[in-house]
Design a protein around this nucleic acid. Structure first.
Lengths: 362, 362
DNA sequence: CACGTCGATGTAATCGATTCCACGAGGAGG
DNA sequence: CCTCCTCGTGGAATCGATTACATCGACGTG
C-alpha cells in the first residue's frame, strides 16, 4: 500500500507538507500544493483512515445498534440514519442485536473497541452494565425508538399515544368491544408504553383490558402467532387483535389463517408500525405509522451535536393512524399506494393531520 | 481512555508483557499473567482496535456493499453475511448503494480507506474503475448475487434457470400464452440473466418474447409500476407479468390494483425472489426463491478463505419455484407459512426438490 | 565447572498519519 | 541597515498497539 512517505518522496517534499495539503492547512505554497496533488494522483494515494484515526482520536464513524434488521421498520430507520450521517460526513456501522441482549452487548463492545465517535442505540433490554458504563463514561450516545429510563442520554422517538387513541376510537366506532393486544417485551420501553397507551385509550371508552387479552410477545412473528392462537382458544375470544409491531402482526395473520378464519370478518387486526407491504396484504392492514425517516435523521443530528460539542436535544415526534380494511371498514380516505412515491422519500409525514376519526373526548 | 501503558504500570510489568498476555503468547509466567489480567479487569481495559489494526495491518472486518437495503432479499443476505462473519471472528460494515453507481463507489472507497480485510460486493453496474482497480490490486473480493464478467473474482450466486423453466411450465399448464417480464437494469448480471432464462424457457414452449413484453425496470417498486402500466396499455396486454425482483412485483401489484383489475383473474403475477410477505399478499404471490442465507454464508466463507490464504471457490446454488395463487391455480402443496419457522433459520432450502410441475421437456 | 539452551522479560522500532516546534528566507517598519 | 514578524517547510514526537532483538537467570549436560 502506498503511504504518505511515498507521496512525499514523489513530490520532493516532507510528509508534513503532504499532510498539510491533504488537510487544507493554509500555509502551503502553491507550488508545493500542486506537486503534492500531482503525486497523490499519479500514485493513486488514499490516506490510511486507521492511522489517521489513531492520531486524531476520531473515526468519523457512528455505531448503530438496532434490535432486528429483518424488521422493515428498523431497516428503514437504518437507512435514514446512514443517509443523514453521510450528509454530515460520518460513516455508520450497523450492529444487529436480533432482540438478543448478549448480541447487543457484543456489538456495543466491538463498536467501542473500534473507537466509534458515537453510538445510536435502540436497546433490546433494560440496559447491560456495559452500555450503562459507556454512557456514564461519556461516550456520546443517543437512544432511538426505545430507551432506558434513568440514564442521562437524549432520546429520539415517536409518541404513539394519540395515534393509539385514534385507533381505539376507530375500533369502538366499528362496534368492537373486546380488544386484545400482543405486547412487546416488558424490558423495552416500546413494549410497555404501547400497552399502557392502549389501556388508557380503552378506559376512555369504559372498556377493560383483562389479563387474558394481553399476549406476551417478543416483537418476532412467531410470538405473534402463538399469542393469537391463545386468544382464539379463549372461551370468549377478542374481536380485535392489536399487535405492538409489524412482525407480530404478520404472525397473527398466520395464526388466523391457519384456523381458516378471516380478517376482518371473524377477527379484526391492527398493528403498530406501518410498512409498505401492509397495503397489499389480505386484507390491507390498519396500522400506526411512525415518521421513521425523520426519527433516524433527528437521532443522527442529536448524536453529531453531542459529538461536536453542541447540546443535543431529545426529540419526540407524533405517530399517526393509517386506516385500512383489516378492522372492518373500508377506508374513507383514498390512499395512494406507498410505492407510488420515490423510494428515497417514501415515508409518512410527521404531522398528525387527517385522522380518520375524531375522538369523542379529549 | 486507558491504554496498554496504564495496564503495564498497574501490573508492574512492561507493555510487551501485557501485549503477550493479551495475545496468548506462550512465554509469560503464570505470575505475570495473573497480575496483568487483574490489572486489565480492575481498569476495565479494552485494547484499542485502531492501534492494533495499524500495527498488524488487519482489521478483522469485511465490507459488504449491497444494492439496496430496503429490498428484503438483500436485508436477509446482509443478515446471514454478518452472522457467518461473526462466527468466523470478523465484523461487517454494510454499505448501501441504493442501486446508484456513485453511491456504490462512495462506499467502496470508504471501505478501502478503512483497510477492511476483504470486500463482498453485489454490483449495481458494470463496475467502476475504482472497483476494478481494487480487484486487480489484489484486494480480497467476492461477488455475491450479481457479478461483473471478465473480472477474476469468485462469484457466489443462485442459478434461477431451472426454476424459471419450472415457472414457465407452470404458467403454460395454466393456459397462459402471452407472458411478459419486467427486467432489471441491463448493467447487472441478474438483470440480463433472468430475461434470457425466461426467453429460453418460453422458446421451449414455442412461445415468443416480443420487445413490447419486456419492461425495463431498475429493481425498484416504482419502475415495476410504470412497466406494468405500459403493459396494460397495450392493445393486447400480456396474461402474465413476471417481475425480476420482489420490489418490482410490488409495484406491479400497485399498478394492477390502481386500474381496478384483479390478480390472477385479470392478469397473473410472478416474481423473482421470495419474501415472507408474499405469503400474505392478496393474492399470495408465486415466486422463485433463492437460498439467500446459504448464499450469504458461502460468500463469507469464500472471502475469508481468500483473506486467510486458502483458495476461494465460486459457488452456484439452485433457486426453486414456490407456487402460490397469483398465477391462477390454488397451490397443490400445502405450504407452511414462512413465519412459522424460527427467524434465524427461516430460509428456503437450497435443494430443487418438490417442483410443483414437471417440465414437458428437458 | 563451563557452556549452551530455554524461558521470561524489557527496550525500542514500527505501522501511517497529524502536529508541535525550530529554522531560514523575505518583507515591513523604524 | 537592523529587527521583528510571517510564511513555508522539515524534523521529530506522538497516538496505542505488536514484535524483533537483547538480556539475564536457571538449568541441563558433557
Amino acid at each position: 500500500m502506498t503511504s504518505i512517505k511515498d507521496v512525499a518522496a514523489e513530490a520532493g517534499v516532507s510528509v508534513a507538507t503532504v499532510s498539510r495539503v491533504l488537510n487544507e492547512h493554509p500555509s502551503v505554497s502553491e507550488d508545493a500544493r500542486a506537486r503534492v496533488l500531482a503525486a497523490v494522483a499519479s500514485l493513486r494515494y488514499r490516506p490510511n483512515a486507521v492511522a489517521r484515526s489513531l492520531r486524531t482520536d476520531q473515526t468519523h464513524t457512528l455505531g448503530l445498534v438496532i434490535s432486528d434488521v429483518l424488521n422493515p421498520y428498523f431497516t428503514e430507520l437504518a437507512r435514514s440514519v446512514e443517509e443523514e450521517a453521510r450528509a454530515l460526513g460520518y460513516s455508520v456501522i450497523i450492529g444487529n442485536a436480533d432482540e438478543r441482549p448478549e448480541l447487543q452487548d457484543h456489538h456495543v463492545r466491538t463498536l467501542l473497541d473500534r473507537r466509534i465517535d458515537g453510538l445510536l442505540v435502540s436497546p433490546t433490554d433494560g440496559g447491560s452494565p456495559l452500555m450503562l458504563d459507556a454512557a456514564r463514561a461519556g461516550t456520546p450516545m443517543v437512544f432511538v425508538d426505545r430507551w432506558i429510563p434513568g440514564v442521562d442520554v437524549p432520546v429520539v422517538r415517536a409518541d404513539g399515544r394519540s395515534a393509539v387513541r385514534d385507533l381505539v376510537a376507530h375500533l369502538h366506532r366499528l362496534g368492537h368491544r373486546r380488544l386484545a393486544i400482543i405486547a412487546g417485551p416488558a424490558a423495552t420501553t416500546t413494549g410497555q408504553e404501547r400497552v399502557e397507551a392502549f389501556r388508557e385509550a380503552l378506559e376512555e371508552y369504559g372498556l377493560d383490558l383483562p389479563d387474558q387479552y394481553i399476549g406476551q410477545g417478543d416483537f418476532q412473528a412467531d410470538s405473534g402467532r402463538r399469542a393469537t392462537e391463545r386468544f382464539l382458544d379463549l372461551a370468549e375470544p377478542p374481536q380485535v387483535v392489536f399487535a405492538a409491531d409489524n412482525l407480530m402482526a404478520l404472525g397473527a395473520l398466520d395464526a388466523v389463517r391457519a384456523r381458516g378464519l378471516r380478517v376482518p370478518d371473524d377477527i379484526a387486526l391492527a398493528a403498530f408500525d406501518d410498512i409498505r407491504w401492509f397495503v397489499h396484504t389480505d386484507p390491507p392492514i390498519t396500522a400506526i405509522a411512525q415518521p421513521t425517516g425523520e426519527l433516524g435523521r433527528a437521532a443522527v443530528r442529536a448524536l453529531v451535536d453531542r459529538i461536536e460539542g453542541r447540546a443535543p436535544r431529545s426529540v419526540t415526534l407524533p405517530a399517526r393512524l393509517v386506516v385500512r380494511r383489516s378492522c372492518g371498514e373500508p377506508p374513507t380516505t383514498n390512499e395512494t399506494p406507498a410505492t407510488s412515491e420515490h423510494p428515497s422519500t417514501n415515508e409518512t409525514p410527521a404531522t398528525n393531520e387527517n385522522p380518520v376519526t375524531n375522538r369523542s373526548q379529549s
